[in-house]
């Protein structure tokens, strides 16, 4: 027995050592991703803040890096994303409500569901190809704000649908039954009870979809958003550029000065997307806490 006790202690010691080693390795792995995010932020801000000033925010692009600015791109991004939201949010919420509240569990509705999951995985550049053929060529919208917004709407739609469905699903069914019990119709129940309760969750998904739309580059290059735009968009048929395309254009220039412009543009874009992401996360945490209290 005493002889046997020795190896057991050894095994336990070895296990404890392995545990400690694993903890270090795992924390290192987590640290690598955090460090990369840190390096990315530091790199962009240290290069970009030098260039980022009022002149940069209020100027049009220029052949001279020190006179170039991002105004046209900020305006373009704002218009495109507003239009995209106006199109994809109602469509997306409508689809989510149908699938969660109305659809029977039959073959056809399951096909719609599978289809949405698959659409969410289609590379964004493929949406650009679709937009190029459908909106730019067949609908003759040309390289316009409208063509860009329609293309991004199709891209954002699956994200909006999926997150809205998740939000609707968290609404307890007792609330629906209470509404039905006092004679409400299905739509009344949905409009007056389910949607208001699911609203914060739906908002979270919408904000994430918008933040992704602001950063989208490839599909808009496909439909021919321009890289040199020295005016503000004048209407739905106006040519336009957006921030990520302007940044891409500056990164692809050989002159060093434009790299600084790119970095400054990245700072603007990063601040916007990080703020939106942060807002979504805060909203979700608040919402989760609220719901867990309600279920008590």
């Amino acid at each position: 027995m005493i002889q046997g006790a020795q190896p057991i202690q050894k095994i336990i010691a070895a296990q404890k050592r392995n545990e400690a080693i694993f903890r270090v390795v795992a924390i290192a792995a987590v640290a690598i991703s955090l460090a990369t995010l840190g390096a990315l932020l530091f790199d962009a801000f240290s290069d970009g803040l030098r260039r980022l000033d009022w002149q940069f925010l209020t100027s049009f692009p220029s052949r001279k890096p020190e006179r170039a600015g991002i105004l046209a791109a900020i305006a373009g991004s704002f218009y495109v994303v507003s239009l995209t939201s106006a199109i994809s949010i109602p469509l997306g919420i409508g689809a989510a409500v149908y699938l969660e509240e109305y659809a029977k569990n039959n073959r056809f509705n399951r096909m719609i569901e599978v289809n949405i999951t698959n659409l969410a995985g289609v590379p964004s550049i493929i949406y650009g190809i679709l937009g190029l053929e459908l909106f730019v060529r067949m609908m003759k919208l040309d390289r316009s704000l409208m063509a860009g917004a329609l293309t991004l709407s199709l891209l954002a739609l699956p994200t909006v649908i999926i997150s809205a469905r998740e939000a609707i699903r968290t609404v307890p069914s007792s609330i629906r039954q209470a509404a039905y019990a006092v004679g409400a119709t299905r739509w009344q129940t949905t409009r007056d009870h389910v949607l208001p309760l699911a609203f914060p969750g739906i908002m979270t998904g919408i904000i994430l979809a918008i933040s992704r739309a602001i950063g989208e580059t490839a599909p808009l290059i496909m439909i021919g958003a321009l890289t040199y735009v020295a005016f503000l968009p004048t209407g739905l048929d106006s040519p336009f550029t957006v921030m990520p395309i302007q940044i891409f254009n500056w990164v692809s220039r050989p002159q060093k000065g434009f790299f600084e412009c790119a970095a400054a543009g990245i700072v603007v874009l990063l601040i916007l997307t990080l703020m939106l992401n942060g807002l979504a996360i805060i909203l979700r945490n608040y919402y989760q806490r609220k719901f867990s209290v309600r279920s008590l």
């Binding site: 991703s33 990369t36 995010l37 390096a39 990315l40 790199d43 962009a44 290069d47 994430l208 933040s211 992704r212 602001i214 950063g215 989208e216 580059t217 990520p244 940044i247 891409f248 990164v251 790299f259 790119a262 970095a263 990245i266 874009l269 990063l270 997307t273 990080l274 992401n277 996360i281």
Partner: peptide, 18 residues
Amino acid sequence: EILAGVPTVIYGYFALLF
């Protein structure tokens, strides 16, 4: 999640210049 939300054009800049 933020790492997944960074626009890819920024990753491109980071890869090329850092």
